Simulated scan of single mutants.
Amino acid sequence: MPTANTALVDRENLREGVDAALARHVASLRETVLAIGPDATPLVDAVERMLAGGKRLRAAFCYWSWRAHGGTPGDEREAAVLRTGAALELFQAAALFHDDVMDDSSTRRGLPTAHRVFADEHRTSQRRGEARRFGDGAAILLGDLALVASDEEMAHALAGLPAPVARAARTVFDLMRTEVTVGQYLDLVAQTMPWGDPADDERRARDVVRTKAARYSVEHPLVLGAALAGADEEALAGCRAVGLPLGEAFQLRDDLLGVLGDPATTGKPTGDDLREGKRTVLVARALALATQAGDTEAAAALARGVGDPGLDADAIAELTALLVRTGAVDEVESLIDELRSETFTQIAARDWPEPARSALVALAHATIDRAA
């Protein structure tokens, strides 16, 4: 994220408070794991590494929404908001551990993914059994461990809050986790489907964007912050109206960066989404535009290439050039612009006070206009 987002996360005890909550949880987890079996401590090390690389985006949306709906820095409810931010970070870690296994990703934030690290350690230690299966199994357990941790942290965050506030926040948190899990499955299903009707391909891609990424990255954290402030249903609906288009723009930008971004900045090899066969709006638009233009060669190359795990750098470059040549990149940029406009129109309709309004506006800009 750009420097603007970093500055917002560093303000008003936000990063410090979230990081402190995460550090406490990791320390407690380490004690528990050591008591169960010292051989399992690499699991705690892996969780700690994953948490260290987070941008705290979701925690920032939650915190500044709480401020926008009447939250006061330093009051008795701030600790609950910061611990909720930590729970969001732990849930994201769980989702990333599982996602990397399902996608067989090689890097995450510029470092080897957990399943690759555990497989390499298995291999170099000359252990029995298949290294890859061990690595995948360890990473699945890591995701489960982080998921349990997110639930524990959320329970601690809500303890002591007024019952209606705790119920409202818990409902949002539970829905978010269910949606991401279902969205991940829809993503898997989409990757198994043959390319067909362009409208259906894009509908399926947009469904995955909303359920797997948009709501959990922006909408639900915004609603959580408002719920923790005791906001009414009208205010929560306002958060949803802002969060969904902003979350969609966030993921569409991610899709563009996945094929056009600088790996040194994004922390992911260029073209991984194409090798994995991600059914993105970008690819759906490219196929639709190639078909409309009668460019059967481009359409066939895209349908054949997307999802081929053996694509080399030259093949990735050729597919990327097709995405640009068909006009799909420009169309996705236009769609991002539409979603940006809707986001800021919705923000303008909210009576959020300063400094929260400016903070959320800046966060929205940083979310859409980013290079990583």
Rank of each mutant, 00 (worst) to 15 (best):
L161Y: 02
L188Q: 08
A169P: 03
E179K: 05
D197M: 11
G160N: 01
A155L: 15
H156D: 10
L175A: 05
A190T: 03
A163Q: 13
W195K: 08
A169L: 03
M154N: 10
G183Y: 01
A205I: 10
R206T: 14
L158P: 06
E202G: 01
A155Q: 11
T178F: 04
V189Q: 14
D187V: 00
E153K: 08
D207P: 00
G183T: 03
V189L: 15
G196V: 13
V189H: 09
L188A: 09
Q191N: 06
E202M: 08
A166T: 07
L161C: 10
H156A: 14
Q191E: 14
W195F: 14
V189R: 14
L188D: 01
R204Q: 12
A159R: 09
Y185I: 02
G160P: 07
R203W: 08
A169C: 07
A168G: 12
H156Q: 11
V172N: 05
P194S: 11
L186N: 05
W195R: 12
A199I: 04
R170V: 00
V180H: 00
A163C: 08
D187Q: 07
A205S: 11
L158V: 08
A163W: 03
M193Y: 01
E153L: 15
Y185E: 00
T181E: 03
F173T: 00
M193W: 06
V172M: 04
D197C: 12
R167M: 07
L161H: 04
D187I: 08
P162W: 07
E179F: 01
T178P: 00
P162R: 09
A163E: 15
R167F: 07
Q184R: 01
E202K: 03
V209C: 09
L158Y: 07
A190K: 10
A169V: 03
A199M: 09
T178D: 00
D207H: 04
R210G: 01
R170G: 03
L188E: 03
F173K: 02
V165L: 10
P162A: 14
L175G: 00
V189S: 09
D197A: 14
G183V: 05
V165P: 02
E153D: 07
H156R: 13
R210S: 05
V180I: 15
M193S: 10
A168Q: 13
A168P: 04
V209M: 04
P162T: 05
E179D: 11
V165Q: 07
